[in-house]
Amino acid sequence: MGASGLILRKCMYLFLLLIAVLVPQVVTSRYILQILIICYIFAVATSSLNLLLGYTGQVSLAHAGFFAIGAYGVAIMTTRSGLNFWWALLLAAAVSALVGFLVGIPMLRTRGSYFAIASLCFGVIVGIVAGSWSSFTGGYLGILGVPLPPPLNLPGMGALGFQSKAAQYYLALALLLLTLFVMHRLVNSPLGLSFMAVRNNELLAGAVGINTFAVKLLSFTVASFFAGLAGGLYASFMRTVSPEVASIHLMFNWVVYLLLGGAGTLAGPVVGTLAITALTEVTQSFKDYSLLVFGALLVVAMIYCPRGLVGAWEAMQRRLGTPLKRFRQVGVRDAKG
């Protein structure tokens, strides 16, 4: 069983990818492309948050802090040390992961709400340090003049520059695809199952030989890495960073994207980020009310639909029993192919 479902599913993914690739050919508005670029970057951040919150069950509110570490890392390394952007991006993400690993050790000893608070404290500390350590971070003004990624020399294609919005779009899309690829492989593996086991029942997970602390720390470190990566690209595309990148409001927005899109599903963070941003953009006057509505929707989602839009879609598929129902059968079974 599942063979035809698998093919259908792969076709759907290819189709979506095709649309994503064709967007810059059809859409010429720089404004829309810019929004999509930011969407993709935020979707990376939200996807990595999903690994922690959705799959490992740890409500981390430190994520904007790691996003900021990545952003400031790239900004500082490129403007002060004149390091090549690509190396700076990789290094900044590595630093973010390292910080995640180090602060994860004390913080992950706590559970539930305590972890949420402790992680939020860390995120806020990053923001305060970014705003106060003027000589290093430029204080509240931040750092200006962060360079765009330099042209990539691709064999057979010549240099690929990132001056145009379309090129930036493809880079952001590539980062999102890389993130989703890694998440997909993680989630559809025994390792990913051990994350979910910790989320599901920590006591039992320990009893079947899973080092729950190590699992949480790994999840936290990987999530920090991708948050840092997203932050680094964001700094470069915005050409500037300021303590805003560490704000708890950004963090709360990601939580909304994730939970309305569907925590614990691979598509959820992407769907949530795109859908909510689109909704906010389509009705400009709605922008003022957006936080009001999303705050309320978050509560409603927690009560009626904890797995968000994707969860609701899956539940509908299950009930209707359409041929599409195989889509939801993610699991290690599929990992073979």
Binding site: P190, L191, L193, L204, G331
Partner: peptide
């Protein structure tokens, strides 16, 4: 107690993870 958010097979796979 079993992992009630996972499938039956996945329950066993995750339990065998300690031998990998």
């Amino acid at each position: 107690t079993v992992f009630d958010q996972l499938k039956v097979l996945d329950n066993l796979l995750v339990a065998h993870k300690l031998r990998t």
